[in-house]
């Protein structure tokens, strides 16, 4: 019996494994808590620890900053439009891949993943090259074009995963009962896809709202919120305001991610 026990991999994790796993988990999460702490520090010139004192006044200072509001507005508008485009194009691609087998079907998946799989700088400089060769002026739309391109795959993955769990028999039943294609889509498929679309949209929004590498190449002189933060990273001028903005951005990206996770938890999880 002793012999047997020793040879079976036990159901209890060993202590070193638990310690290593916990360490990795803490490494992933503690840094974000530290930002929360710094948002309340009274120190405005350095990052000194422990903070000399605590205050909430930076929140009101940040709220009065016009450059913050302008950058936030641009980021929200870009993310909104890019998400809409990604929802439409990503769902269409997913429906096409789900519905029929055609020549080059696998290539479509690879093509859609490529903007996320290749280093962001490749997508960025590629768009920048096209803008240069086409002599297109930088605008709101040059940013949206880039964002929609890499957001599409998130929607595509989520919708395709949901479609694959969806029996074709339901569609056939709907057609047999006399519904036309549009009615089947409206009353059978859309309710089933709704949460996948919402989750894909949320993730696409979070992805776009946070993107900086591609945006650097397509924005010209325009300032999205991530570009504003990046400028503070390389040349810190307004440390207390940046701390507050960082907390704000964390909250604003956590919410859609948590919602997306909840929406897809019972249906195979979110898809990158």
């Amino acid at each position: 019996m002793r012999y047997k026990m020793r040879n079976t991999v036990s159901d209890q994790a060993s202590l070193p494994l638990k310690v290593a796993a916990t360490a990795a988990l803490l490494f992933l999460h503690i840094p974000v808590w530290i930002i929360l702490l710094y948002a309340f520090t009274t120190d405005e010139a350095t990052y000194s620890f422990p903070p000399p004192g605590f205050t909430t006044r930076w929140f009101s200072v940040a709220l009065e900053r016009q450059d913050f509001w302008t950058a936030l507005g641009l980021s929200l508008r870009v993310a909104g439009v890019a998400t809409m485009a990604a929802l439409l194009l990503g769902s269409l691609a997913a429906a096409a891949v789900y519905r029929s087998k055609f020549f080059g079907r696998e290539t479509i998946s690879v093509l859609l993943v490529l903007p996320l799989a290749l280093p962001g700088i490749v997508t960025g400089i590629a768009l920048r090259s096209a803008i240069s060769i086409g002599e297109i002026p930088f605008s709101f739309w040059t940013i949206v074009l880039g964002h929609a391109t890499f957001c599409m795959v998130v929607v595509y993955n989520n919708v395709l995963a949901r479609l694959r769990r969806f029996g074709r028999s339901l569609i056939e039943a709907s057609m047999d009962l006399g519904a036309n294609g549009f009615q089947t889509f409206r009353y059978v498929m859309l309710p089933h896809l709704a949460t996948a679309l919402l989750a894909g949209g949320m993730l696409a929004f979070a992805l776009s709202f946070d993107e900086v590498i591609v945006t650097t190449f397509t924005a010209g002189q325009q300032m999205t919120l991530p570009i504003w933060i990046f400028s503070q990273l390389t040349r810190p001028r307004d440390r207390p305001v940046t701390n507050v903005v960082a907390v704000f951005v964390i909250l604003l990206t956590f919410i859609p991610i948590l919602i997306a996770h909840r929406l897809t938890r019972d249906a195979g999880g979110t898809h990158l």
Partner: peptide, 15 residues
Amino acid sequence: PLWSSYLVRVYAWKL
């Protein structure tokens, strides 16, 4: 952490 703001997470380490 994979989905949440990459820039802010870099910023955290600056602190």
